[in-house]
Design a binder for these strands. Structure first.
Length: 510
RNA sequence: CGCGGGGUGGAGCAGCCCGGUAGCUCGCGAGGCUCAUAACCUCGAGGUCGGCGGUUCAAAUCCGCCCCCCGCAACCA
């Protein structure tokens, strides 16, 4: 039993949430649920990154206050995550001056004391139309492609975080076997290490208020506002009050607390390079791992408003009558952690029909209906039909190979369907039939537990219909899968099944 | 030579690190069953694993070169 602190990237709420956000939260939630179920003490945090020029600009366009904009949009995220049954314990907002700011400001001061910050003049090409600095890539013939105007050279004072000197140290941190900052899946580590090889540059850590006003002021330097790094990355620490006297800080400070950041591949470099550098210089311990997921395309193409293939999470929920499990199952089943994945309406419909409805739902139903006809009483559950499934499953889950773990659970479903046909269970003499059905019910009890981190409410519903005594407690945060529960026939007080109901209805049904 | 990911039966993917019958879901064809949500089960057709070359008794899997697709390239969150 250990202590697990798990976070997701904080979302930028200048627009409503999209499928990319959902993919990340479902991944993190499945991991968090697994940790709880295996008996760990878990704190799971999500949140929003609410500062920056983009929010400022969007608010201006709408003629409202930045704060009003985020206050309007943030609930969209919270609401969606609740309906997806993301079991977060804490939601952090970077505009929260009580929770977030004290850690940020303390961290800044620590960095300054450690002489990790330096004030310099930054010179770059600034496009008035875009209201931002341009990179070589943005320019066509030296002009801004959007505004067809040459950007002007602008100089401004910035605080910089000194990163150049950290290359060797970072490389060691990211590659050392024990006690390092592990990148999962390991394939993702390569590009980050390659970046270090190319040499690191110092990063801008603040901007003048004239360029960025919507942010946290730099302490003791009026006119400077913190740039995204110190503000946003620090949420992981501020959420538990690192560098303050809040008691939750144990989640971070305790040596035996494991810290996992779940993020997308696009921001891996910041989390792998800038964040540890900040922590090191501030004298705060390092996280344990970075769990990186890929991107979601839609029908094979990048989701984009111009192509018009953007999929709204709300639409997907609506299609399945508000049930988040088809979407949760789809993401976990179809997309190996770390890989890019594709969302298509056709595919999710197929997965729903084939896996959830026909294989899983139908299995539960045929077993329960048969059992009901026999009086619904359970006898001895007979020969173990699970074998090493729990072991394989747990190994996969512990290694964050969620797709493999889910496949292991579905293998039992398919096996049970095959078995029913091979044995012609429905045609057996009464005594034998009863014995076989008890065995099948026991298989389903295990299946329900195996599915619990992935599709929690469906898993609970399966156990309810089976009449398993612990069914009502399964969604509580302190519910733990005990050794007894994993044992074949381990649930001695379970003698009677409940009423069969359709688990997943056909989509075409009214 | 900027960095990284990918190219596997009609579609979408796994396998590749640790070489040795090419696996899964869907689709297609035939059959079985009727307990069940027209669901379930069995069998089958369909792949020169992007191309060329190398290593090896043996390569989708290791090495080299080439072609194609997709992200990122640091102030953009």
């Amino acid at each position: 039993m250990s202590r697990q602190y798990i976070t997701t990237a904080i979302d930028y709420p200048n627009a409503p949430p999209h499928m990319g956000h959902v993919m990340e939260k479902v991944l993190a939630d499945t991991v968090a649920r697994w940790f709880r179920l295996r008996g760990d003490e878990v704190r799971f945090q999500v949140g929003t990154d609410e500062h920056g020029v983009k929010i400022e600009r969007t608010a201006k366009k709408e003629g409202i206050d930045p704060m009003a904009l985020v206050d309007r949009n943030v609930p969209l995220y919270q609401n969606l995550y609740h309906r997806l049954q993301i079991s977060f314990d804490f939601f952090i907002r970077t505009t929260d001056e009580k929770t977030h700011w004290p850690t940020v400001i303390a961290l800044w001061k620590k960095l300054q004391e450690a002489k990790a910050l330096e004030k310099r003049t930054y010179t770059g090409l600034y496009c008035q139309g875009c209201e931002r600095f341009m990179t070589a890539r943005d320019l066509v013939d030296g002009k801004c492609a959007i505004h067809n105007a040459a950007p002007e050279k602008v100089s401004e004072e910035n605080w910089f975080l000194l990163m150049q000197r950290e290359g060797e140290w970072l490389k060691k941190l990211l590659t050392q076997k024990k006690g390092g900052y592990e990148i999962v899946p390991s394939e993702r580590a390569q590009e980050t290490l390659a970046l270090i090889e190319q040499g690191l540059d110092d990063v801008s850590f603040s901007r003048p208020q004239s360029s960025l006003s919507w942010g946290i002021p730099v302490p003791d330097d009026l006119g400077q506002v913190m740039y995204v790094w110190c503000d946003a990355l620090t949420n992981y620490a501020s959420g538990v009050g690192v560098l303050t006297d809040r008691p939750e800080a144990v989640w971070w400070n305790d040596e035996d607390s494991e810290i996992t950041h779940v993020i997308g591949k696009d921001i891996a470099r910041f989390h792998a390079l800038i964040w540890p550098t900040m922590l090191k210089n501030a004298g705060v311990r390092q996280p344990n791992r970075l769990l990186i997921h890929g991107f979601l395309t839609s029908d094979g193409q990048k989701m984009s408003k111009t192509i018009g293939n953007v999929v709204e999470p709300e639409e997907v929920l609506k299609k399945f009558g508000g049930n988040p499990d088809p979407l949760r199952f789809y993401l976990s089943h179809e997309i190996p952690v770390g890989n890019d994945g594709d969302f298509s309406w056709k595919r999710i419909g197929e997965v729903y029909d084939s896996m959830l409805r026909n294989k899983l739902g139908n299995l539960l139903n045929r077993v329960l209906v048969l059992l009901k006809k026999e009086g619904g009483t359970l006898g001895d559950c007979g020969k173990d039909a699970i074998g090493t499934a729990w072991k394989t499953y747990a190994e996969s889950m512990d290694d964050f190979r969620l797709t493999d773990a889910l496949a292991e659970a579905m293998k039992i479903v398919v096996g049970a369907n095959e078995y029913i046909d091979a044995r012609k269970v429905w045609a057996l003499p009464a005594a034998e039939k009863a014995a076989e059905l008890s065995n099948l019910a026991e298989r389903l009890r295990h299946i329900s537990l195996l599915l619990l981190p992935f599709i929690p409410s469906t898993a609970q519903e399966i156990s309810r219909q089976l009449g398993v005594p612990y069914a009502e407690k399964m969604l509580e945060k302190d519910f733990v899968i005990t050794a007894k529960m994993k044992e074949w026939g381990g649930q001695k007080d379970w003698r009677k099944v409940g009423e069969p109901r359709i688990l997943f209805a056909p989509l075409s049904a009214p």
